[in-house]
Design a protein around this nucleic acid. Structure first.
Lengths: 229, 229
DNA sequence: CTATGTGAATTTATTCACAGCA
DNA sequence: TGCTGTGAATAAATTCACATAG
């Protein structure tokens, strides 16, 4: 039976609607860090409050999008006035669970890995890259940005060191194997820079960034006649 | 007048439908490089043809999604058989305008910039990072991966060197200014690694990657109780 | 009998218009 | 009056079911 009768369909629809009543759109979650980044910057500039319109202009998005996104979580602003930047920042951090410091491990201290270690942008979101691993004996023991590179065999110590996030910056051939070991080590979230799909147990979240792939869709959007001949 | 009468609404709907009849979803364009990456890998493994189902399993996506995406551009496969990998690869490259070599410039040879220069993944999509720029006199003139670092004042030479793409890996304070100069130099597409919004003329496409921001939405998806205390 | 290609149904996300509160 | 918060309308994307071609 492929087409259930009308009443059955409507019943199912109602059930699903109730179940998902307060479901947060993934796109909203994707945008929250954008808002947070802007708010942190504005706070740094000494700004104390802002309207959705001004924030929208600043971030080059729509004001109703911002209000709608916030509305999924409650009422954060004051009608007729706007938002207190400090309070709003705290709320968003709470939603994203960024209100505690997250200790992260980096695996693969090559070109990209070293750049990640040196990248100054993680701190504002409360991340602390607390460990680095590699399989190259020449790198093990060396210090990069106050972090001593350890042998990958030490990955099983992550759990007791309260490290629950990992960044994979190894060659694609060993990405899956690295992920497996991270999961064994108790890691619950992975930021993967290897250009491949990674299989993990359902409870672990993986976000993959493939910088070449992002570049690959640029030419499509570029006006014709402007491509190199 | 905010609510047009019924007939007017329907008329407008028809006009919009016709205008957008063959509009390609942005999400489809975003996925094409994923398919391309997988196909290039399979070709390398000696595979010659594949069904949407097998490709879907390999890439961890849905088979109907793949078929739907391709259908926007025409008929690429053979019913009852599947797709010829070599032909399909050529088609996708054509759509994404990756069938010609694109020469790209890198601006900012710091940690991240150097990693980008050394990154081996751009070649498969037909990108050639043909120039690198920095404002640090200590770096200018040095060679990184066969590319000589030039002074940022030389950005205006990009047009005559047939470079139409750029990668920005400079501190956020100078990102906008860098973008302005790139646009003056004739650049039509920018991959921006600075954690900020960049304003460019409408004809220029910008894609921004903020690696810290991607990490920032991981904790939200991680199971409760697993965050560092 | 197999696997593609696609209109239609469904789901998800965006945009709108305005009620409601300061 | 000004700006938030939100149900409703619209748009976009995904998923489905199957007609169709090899």
């Amino acid at each position: 039976m492929c087409r259930p009768c009308e009443c059955e369909r409507k019943y199912q629809l109602i059930v699903i609607t109730i179940m998902r009543y307060r479901r947060i759109p993934d796109e909203t979650i994707r945008r929250l860090p954008i808002y947070l980044r802007g708010l942190l910057y504005l706070a740094q500039q000494g700004r104390e409050s802002i309207s959705s319109r001004s924030l929208a202009d600043f971030l080059a998005v729509n004001s109703w999008q911002i209000r709608k996104d916030f509305s999924y979580f409650g009422e954060f602003g004051t009608r007729g006035v706007g938002y207190k930047i400090e309070k709003l920042t705290r709320q968003i951090k709470g939603i994203l669970k960024l209100d505690v410091v997250h200790r992260a491990a980096l695996v693969g201290v090559g070109n990209l890995g070293s750049a990640v270690l040196a990248y100054p942008g993680f701190g504002i979101y409360g991340f602390d890259i607390a460990a680095a691993f590699d399989n190259d004996p020449g790198k093990i023991g060396s210090k990069v940005k106050n972090v001593t590179v350890e042998d990958v065999s030490k990955l099983r110590t992550l759990r007791k060191r309260k490290i629950d996030l990992a960044i994979i910056a190894v060659p694609r051939e060993v990405a899956q194997q690295t992920a497996d070991e991270l999961v064994k080590g108790g890691i619950k979230g992975i930021l993967n820079f290897s250009p491949c799909y990674i299989t993990v147990p359902g409870k672990v979240k993986v976000i993959t960034i493939d910088i070449a792939m992002d570049l690959a869709r640029l030419p499509y959007y570029m006006p014709v006649g402007s491509k190199a001949k």
